[in-house]
Structures are given as C-alpha cells and as structure tokens.
Amino acid sequence: MADRVAVVTGGGRGIGRAVSILAARAGYRICLSYVSDAAAARQVVAAIEAEGGQAVAVQGDVGVETDVLALFAAADRLGTVAALVNNAGVVDVAARVDAMSAERLRRMMTINVVGSLLCAREAVRRMSTRHGGQGGSIVNLSSVAAKLGGAGQYVDYAASKGAIDSFTVGLAREVAPEGIRVNAVAPGIIDTEIHASGGQPDRARALAPLIPMQRPGTAEEIGGPIVWLLSEEAAYMTGAIVDVTGGR
C-alpha cells in the first residue's frame, strides 16, 4: 500500500470528506478534488497529514475533461492510482420535470454521469492489466433515488443515478478480466451539505419519519462501506450496488 493512491472526487466535504479520511487511515495516499471550497479541501488534507498520511487537493470540475486530466496527473505524481471513488455530484432545487430547463438537465447529467465516466476512463487507463496496470477498484456513488424516482422533486437527479447503476454493472463486466473491480454504494437520506445546495438544508432531518431507522445517516456511515469495497476483503465483489439506506 506504500504508494497506492485513491482518487476521491468531491473529497472536500460530506461523504467525500469521510471517504478521504477513512481511505487514508486504510493506507492510501489521497488525491481529492473540489470545485470551489478550497478551505474545506485544505482542512481534509490537514486532517490526513495530522494522522501521518499523505494527501493533495486539486481544484476542478469533473464535468470538464481538462480538469479530470489535471486531477489524474496530480494523482500520478503522488503514486500509483489503485482506487477511484466517483463521489462528486449535484442536485438542484425541487421541481417537476415540466418545469426543468435544458441548462439544469445538462448540468445534472454532465457532472453526475459524464464526470463519473471520464474519471473512470482515466482510472481504467492506469489500473487495467491490459494497459500495463496492476489492477484496482472503483466505487461509484449511486442513490436510492435511482429506485424511488424522485417524483415531484428530483426526477433528473434520480435518472442520473439510474445511469450510474447501469454504468457500474457494465463497466464491472468489461474490466473484470483486467484486474479491476467496479461497485456502487447507494445511500439513502444522509445528513450532508448537499441538501442545502438544493435549497432544503433541513431536508435530511425532516424526512427522518419516512426512514425505518427514524434518522438520516451520516457521511461516515457511507464512507465505511465505500472503503470496505475498495479493500481486499471485498475481493470477489464486482458489479454490486450496495444499498445503505437505513431500511428505506
């Protein structure tokens, strides 16, 4: 594990922050991306370094190919890319489909879907034995919304996560003979900053009565399963979509 690098997109806050710190504790060097909150990203790097780990933060938008290339170039300088967590994603304000603009839909699909595919492409080019790599693991962030549909609020977000589910299964089968495992984690209602970005900062707590466990999850409760899927303990798992929803 000495020079093995985990690339974590959207690693400065929420689930990405938890994954970055937990993966560093598991022995990975961390290359995390962030879009605008440099202070939060620096705090994650500082937290990892305080525990004896190594990390770098790279500003960039996963929906922009040149930014993705820069992210992976930074990862290459840190060591051998062995893991990718496709965590970066966006929501928008609650709306029906008949009120959604083309700009909203393009943003949603570009960041949530195209961004994940671009990052996976770069990871496969480095990890695949077909390209001279040593194998590795990719974990995509899906959502229970892919099953529930997001009616009346986030049908576009749910659709983007449905695409991630299909992508996970397809890529897993494509690269399994090349030493790469590809899985997804599908969170339920998690208490992170993403709800505020959609204009509903209290959404996670407000929806608690709809969750069988009667509470939203935490970022760390999603980060743990993600890091486990990266590990050798999950060596025979690929193409799996793991629900972490509190029973929802």
Rank of each mutant, 00 (worst) to 15 (best):
R96W: 08
D165C: 05
Y154H: 12
R13Y: 10
V155N: 02
I164A: 08
L32V: 10
G247I: 01
V5A: 10
L230E: 08
A99C: 04
S33E: 05
S20A: 15
V244M: 08
A26W: 02
A23E: 12
R248E: 14
S128A: 14
A83I: 00
R203I: 05
V185T: 08
G199T: 11
E103I: 10
I138P: 00
A196M: 08
A159G: 05
A82M: 13
D243Q: 14
L148S: 04
A172M: 06
S128F: 01
A146C: 05
V56F: 06
L118S: 10
G132R: 14
G53T: 09
A70W: 04
D61K: 10
T129H: 06
A38L: 08
R130A: 14
H195T: 01
V185G: 07
G162I: 09
E122D: 10
Q59S: 14
I30M: 09
V7I: 06
G149T: 10
D165K: 07
D165M: 08
V93F: 06
A95T: 07
A47E: 15
A94V: 02
G247M: 10
Y236H: 14
R96C: 01
V91K: 10
G132D: 11
V227Q: 03
V56W: 03
G246A: 08
Q200S: 14
E221G: 04
L229T: 03
S101R: 03
A88L: 08
S166C: 12
V185K: 01
N86C: 13
G53Y: 07
V182M: 05
A151V: 10
G27Y: 00
G188L: 02
M237P: 04
R25N: 03
R248L: 15
R125D: 11
